[in-house]
């Protein structure tokens, strides 16, 4: 049970520009309980890989299997996005509501929770990431570290089974980074982590893969 396969990419190919394909048959599997770190140089396609997993991009070839079913069309990915929470590289891309509480409740409201329930979920999730009482704060006036934690709360409020983290420590100071790592270590979710931050990866990784020349290999 603890080894259940959550997300799987099979020989996925993708190119933004036909001359220079980014992924050339990349395969990957994430099981429950794992925190898998994806390493690789800039521009290797790490973010692309995460976006393919939740259907923001579609592969030119290969299969994406999420939570026991192959996913091909936009409607297949609705469920995937609710169960695999993607944390974006730039927190400002993710925060778009005026207040923190509204932003955190955005996901639950989209999933059909009642306003009262969504508010409860949002408040509880904020407290869980250590941002108790931040609900009324204006999102664009938060510090970088606070923004990062709010985006994490936004994703966790959807109660996902897996987290996809895209450079989660970018722009964070040591204190904020350590706090984030502690928080992530206590979460039960399986994680797919893209990061250049050595120390952070060392703390979190249960397994590592390397993305090189469009393919993934064990590191």
């Amino acid at each position: 049970m603890s080894e259940a396969l959550l997300l799987q990419l099979e020989s996925v190919c993708f190119a933004y520009d036909a001359e220079r394909p980014v992924l050339r048959g990349a395969s990957l599997a994430l099981r429950s309980g794992e925190r898998l770190v994806i390493e690789g140089p800039n521009g290797a396609g790490k973010t692309t890989l995460l976006h393919l997993t939740v259907g923001l991009l579609r592969p030119a070839a290969g299969r994406i299997i999420a939570f026991g079913r192959e996913r091909r069309h936009e409607r297949d990915f609705h469920e995937v996005r609710a169960r695999a929470g993607l944390l974006f590289q730039d927190a400002d891309d993710q925060l778009f509501c005026p207040t923190v509480l509204e932003d955190v409740a955005f996901g639950p409201l989209n999933l059909g929770r009642t306003p009262v329930h969504a508010r409860e979920i949002a408040e509880a999730t904020l407290a869980a990431v250590g941002l108790h009482g931040f609900g009324a704060r204006i999102t664009h006036r938060l510090s970088g570290g606070e923004k990062r934690l709010v985006t994490l709360a936004c994703v966790l409020a959807m109660r996902p089974d897996a987290l996809l983290l895209d450079e989660p420590t970018t722009g964070l100071d040591e204190g904020a980074e350590a706090a984030l790592a502690r928080l992530l270590l206590e979460l039960p979710q399986a994680m797919l982590i893209v990061s250049h931050d050595r120390a952070f990866c060392n703390r979190l990784a249960t397994r590592r893969v390397m993305l090189r020349d469009g393919r993934l290999e064990d590191a």
């Binding site: 939740v54 923001l56 609705h78 891309d93 993710q94 955005f106 989209n110 306003p115 936004c154 994703v155």
Partner: peptide
């Protein structure tokens, strides 16, 4: 931003408290 919203289940309707 649209991609991030889709990831949180956005389908064109805006909800509020």
């Amino acid at each position: 931003v649209l991609a991030a919203m889709k990831c949180r289940g956005f389908d064109g309707r805006l909800h509020s408290f």
